[in-house]
Deep mutational scan, measured.
Amino acid sequence: TYYTVKSGDTLNKIAAQYGVSVANLRSWSGISGDLIFVGQKLIVKKG
Rank of each mutant, 00 (worst) to 15 (best):
N12Y: 14
T1G: 11
F37E: 11
G19M: 08
F37L: 09
Y2N: 08
G39V: 04
K45D: 11
V38K: 06
Q40V: 05
K6F: 04
S29Y: 03
K6Y: 04
G39Y: 03
N24L: 12
Q40L: 07
V5M: 02
A16Y: 10
T4D: 06
G30S: 09
T4V: 15
N24D: 15
V5C: 06
K41I: 15
S27R: 12
V20G: 01
K6E: 09
V5W: 04
S7G: 09
V44M: 06
V20W: 03
Q17N: 10
W28I: 06
G30C: 11
T10D: 08
G30H: 09
K41S: 09
V22G: 03
V38S: 07
F37Q: 10
Q17V: 11
V5H: 01
Y3M: 04
W28D: 06
L11N: 00
G30T: 06
Q40S: 05
Q40A: 05
Y2G: 06
G47P: 15
N12H: 14
S32R: 09
L35N: 14
V20Q: 06
Q17K: 13
N12L: 15
G19L: 07
R26M: 13
T4P: 03
V38I: 11
S7H: 14
K41R: 14
G47R: 11
V20R: 01
Y18G: 02
S21I: 04
K45S: 14
L42K: 01
G47S: 13
D34N: 11
V5A: 05
S27V: 12
G30A: 08
R26V: 12
S29G: 08
G30F: 07
W28P: 02
Y3G: 02
Y2V: 14
A15H: 00
T1V: 14
L25N: 01
F37N: 08
N24V: 12
S27M: 14
K6W: 03
A23D: 15
G33T: 10
A16M: 12
S29Q: 07
L11V: 06
L42C: 05
I31V: 10
K13F: 09
Y2F: 12
V5E: 01
K45T: 11
S21R: 04
Q17H: 11
D9V: 01
V44T: 06
I43C: 13
I14S: 00
L35C: 12
T1A: 11
K41V: 15
V20N: 02
I43S: 07
K6L: 09
I36A: 03
F37S: 10
W28F: 06
K46P: 15
N12A: 15
S27D: 15
L42T: 02
V22N: 03
L25C: 02
I36T: 03
D9E: 04
K46Y: 13
G39A: 03
R26G: 04
T1E: 15
Y2C: 15
T1N: 12
Q40E: 07
I36P: 03
I14M: 01
W28E: 05
L35P: 08
Y3S: 00
L11G: 00
Y3I: 09
Y2S: 10
I14H: 00
V44I: 15
S7I: 15
G8I: 03
W28S: 06
K45W: 12
Q17Y: 12
L11M: 07
S7M: 14
K13D: 12
Q17E: 14
K6A: 09
K6H: 07
D9C: 03
R26P: 02
G8R: 04
G39I: 03
N24F: 07
T1Q: 14
L35V: 14
L35F: 13
Y18I: 10
N12M: 14
D34A: 07
A16L: 13
V22S: 06
V22W: 02
T10M: 04
R26H: 05
L11I: 09
T4F: 12
Q17C: 12
G30M: 08
S21M: 06
G30N: 12
A23R: 08
K46L: 15
K45P: 10
K13S: 15
S21F: 04
S7P: 15
N24M: 13
G8V: 02
A16C: 12
K41W: 07
I36F: 06
I31W: 06
V20L: 08
N12F: 13
L35M: 13
K6C: 07
V38Q: 08
V22K: 07
D34H: 09
S32A: 11
N12G: 13
Y18F: 15
I43E: 07
K46I: 15
V38D: 07
G19E: 09
I31S: 03
K45F: 13
K6P: 01
T10E: 05
S27P: 01
D9S: 01
Y18E: 06
I43V: 12
S32Q: 13
T1H: 14
I31Q: 04
S29T: 08
Q40R: 03
Q17M: 15
I36N: 01
F37P: 04
G39D: 05
Q17L: 14
A23Y: 06
I36C: 05
L25Q: 00
V44W: 04
G47T: 13
S32D: 14
S29D: 03
G47V: 13
L35Q: 14
L25E: 00
G8H: 05
G19W: 05
A23E: 15
N12Q: 15
I36L: 12
K13A: 12
I31D: 03
Y18W: 12
T1K: 12
N12E: 15
A16T: 10
K41M: 12
N12R: 12
A16H: 12
K41D: 07
Q17P: 00
D34F: 08
V20E: 08
T10P: 01
S32Y: 10
K13R: 10
K41F: 08
D9L: 01
G8Q: 05
N24Y: 06
S29M: 05
K6Q: 14
N24K: 10
G30D: 10
V22I: 11
T10S: 09
I43N: 08
G47A: 13
R26A: 09
S7E: 15
S29H: 04
V22Q: 05
S32M: 12
Y18A: 07
V20F: 03
F37K: 10
V22C: 07
V38H: 06
D9A: 01
S7R: 10
L35Y: 14
Y2T: 11
G39M: 03
A23V: 10
A23L: 07
W28G: 03
R26K: 15
K46W: 15
Y3E: 02
N12K: 14
V38Y: 05
S7T: 13
I36V: 09
S29K: 02
K46R: 12
Y3C: 05
G33R: 05
S27A: 15
D34V: 07
N24I: 11
N12I: 15
G47F: 12
K6S: 08
S21G: 05
V44S: 02
S27Y: 12
I36H: 01
Q17A: 13
G19H: 10
N12W: 14
V20D: 02
T10V: 04
Y18R: 04
A15W: 02
N12V: 15
I43P: 05
L25S: 00
T10W: 03
V5G: 01
L35W: 10
K6N: 07
L25R: 00
V44K: 02
R26S: 08
K46N: 13
A15L: 03
V22Y: 02
T1F: 15
F37G: 06
G47I: 13
T10Y: 03
Q40K: 03
K13Q: 11
I14C: 02
L11R: 00
D34L: 07
A15R: 00
A16F: 10
S32C: 11
Q40P: 02
K46F: 15
D9I: 01
A16D: 12
G39K: 02
I31T: 05
G33M: 07
I31G: 03
L42W: 01
Y3V: 08
S27K: 14
G33C: 09
L42A: 01
N12C: 14
I43Y: 10
K13Y: 09
F37R: 09
D34Y: 08
S7L: 15
S27N: 12
Q40C: 05
K41P: 05
T1M: 14
T10G: 02
F37W: 11
L11W: 07
T4W: 12
S32K: 12
L25P: 00
D9Y: 00
V5P: 02
K45H: 13
S7A: 15
L42Q: 00
K13P: 00
F37D: 08
T10Q: 04
I14F: 01
T1I: 15
G33H: 08
V5D: 02
L42P: 01
D34C: 11
V20C: 11
S21D: 08
Q17G: 07
S7V: 15
I43G: 03
D9W: 01
Q40W: 05
V38F: 05
T1D: 13
I31C: 05
G30Y: 07
T4Y: 13
V22H: 03
S7C: 13
K13M: 12
G39P: 00
G30L: 06
D9R: 00
K46M: 15
L11E: 01
V5Y: 03
I43H: 09
I36M: 05
Y18C: 09
I31M: 09
I14T: 00
A23M: 08
D34M: 08
V20I: 14
T4N: 06
G33V: 07
G47C: 12
R26E: 07
Q17F: 12
V22D: 04
S29L: 05
A23H: 11
Y2A: 08
L25F: 03
V38E: 11
A15G: 06
N24W: 08
I43Q: 10
Q40G: 03
Y18K: 04
Y2I: 13
T4Q: 09
Y2R: 07
W28L: 07
G33N: 10
L35K: 13
S21Y: 03
V20K: 01
Y3L: 05
G30Q: 10
L42M: 07
I31L: 14
V44D: 03
T10R: 03
G33A: 08
G19P: 01
S27W: 10
V38T: 09
T1L: 14
L11H: 02
K45G: 13
G33I: 07
I36K: 01
F37T: 12
Y3P: 01
R26Q: 13
D34W: 09
W28V: 05
K13N: 11
